Amino acid sequence: MKKTLLLTGAALSAALLLTACGGGTVGETPSGDSGAKTNNKKLSLIPGVQAEPFYISMQCGAEAEAKKAGYELTTQAPQKFDAAMQTQLVNALGSNPPAALLIAPTDAQAMLAPIQQVKNRGSKIIEVDTALKDTSVAESSISSDNAEGGKLAAKTMAELAAGKTGSVLVLDTIAGTSTTNTRAKGFEDELKNYPNLKSAGVQFTQNEPDQAASKVTAALASTPDLIGIFATNLNTGEGAATGLRNAGKIGAVNLIGFDASPSEIEGLKKGEYQGLIAQDPAAIGQQGVQQAIAALEGKPVTRNLTASLHSITKANMDANAQYFYKQSC
């Protein structure tokens, strides 16, 4: 009787996890085993936020690679780029974790404990896009070279300025977000190489477009010689474009965004953006799955991988269309 009750409880736990993931098989259930070994063909992806084209493109790349390799991948994402919301999803993996968790930590420190708990239950951890400060947790980290991305944005800004003097504002997301913070620093470091351009500082937007718009409005009032804005991700870029639009400064202040979402590409066509630094999120997802499977199958794993970056302007956008982000797979 006791054995029957235990099996029923395990089946119920598996069913609850299946419902949370929105479908798919949970995996074989070997007798006397539990945790990630139960789901030896199951991969989970928890990106930074839902409905964002960058992460959708990453999901598309990951799903295609998992399917090709005979693995199942399910994706859940928080409604906001928020550590508390992401922690809830990680904790929901519960006692029935996947064989491997691909995750974009929304905070380099706050996400350590919940991710470590999943690892302790037997899951392999693969970081995609963002990373923990503690480098002992993940098997592999795949991201863009964010410092180089920031430097590329500064170089593009200097080209757009064409020798004109002025100040440049950096709009970052949240303090503690490894990717965007590194982009901001790379930009600031490279900007020092251009005497005609001076920094107006880095301001945080909490990854909220309306806050980015407000920061732009304030900067236009306090910095009369504002010549450019570098926005470190999609939401800050869209908010910055709104702020410039409301002030009637579209085109008068060069706006460089990071990423190449459909809305940003449309903005580039309209002249709301003068430049975009595009990543290759599909390749990040693809490589994340490849590294997860290598770790699970005892094959060599590369600890750090970087994806390519591309400076896109209105003049070269047609030649770089393969790097435009998707809204659906």
Rank of each mutant, 00 (worst) to 15 (best):
L152M: 13
Y194D: 08
A108L: 00
R183Y: 10
I142R: 02
G176F: 00
S136Q: 11
L152R: 02
D129K: 05
L171H: 02
G150S: 01
D145F: 02
K192T: 11
A153H: 01
N181S: 13
A153F: 04
T130A: 14
Q116C: 03
I126G: 15
S144Q: 15
D129G: 08
V128Q: 02
Q116G: 09
S123L: 13
M157G: 09
G149F: 11
A158W: 00
A162R: 04
K185Q: 15
T135Q: 13
D134I: 07
E139T: 12
A161V: 06
I125E: 10
A108G: 06
I126P: 12
F204C: 04
T180A: 09
S140W: 04
K192I: 01
G176Y: 00
D172H: 04
G150L: 06
F187E: 08
A110V: 07
E148T: 13
G176P: 03
T180F: 11
M157L: 12
S140F: 08
E148H: 11
N146C: 11
A184W: 00
T135F: 01
S178A: 15
T156R: 06
S140V: 10
S123T: 10
V170A: 10
T180R: 08
L169M: 13
D134Q: 02
K198C: 08
T180I: 13
L171F: 10
R183H: 06
K164I: 08
K124T: 14
V170P: 02
E127T: 01
E188S: 09
M111D: 13
L132G: 03
S199W: 06
E190L: 06
D129I: 04
G122Y: 05
S123Q: 07
L160P: 01
Q203V: 14
T156A: 14
G166D: 04
V128C: 10
L132C: 01
A110N: 09
S167N: 14
T177D: 04
V202W: 09
E159C: 04
D129N: 13
S178D: 10
T182I: 03
E190G: 02
T177R: 07
T130H: 04
L112P: 06
S167E: 15
A184R: 02
V168E: 03
S178Y: 00
T177E: 12
S167Y: 10
D129A: 12
A153N: 05
Q203S: 08
K119A: 14
V128G: 06
Q116H: 08
S199Y: 02
V128E: 05
R183T: 00
L152H: 06
A200I: 13
A113D: 15
T182Y: 00
G150D: 05
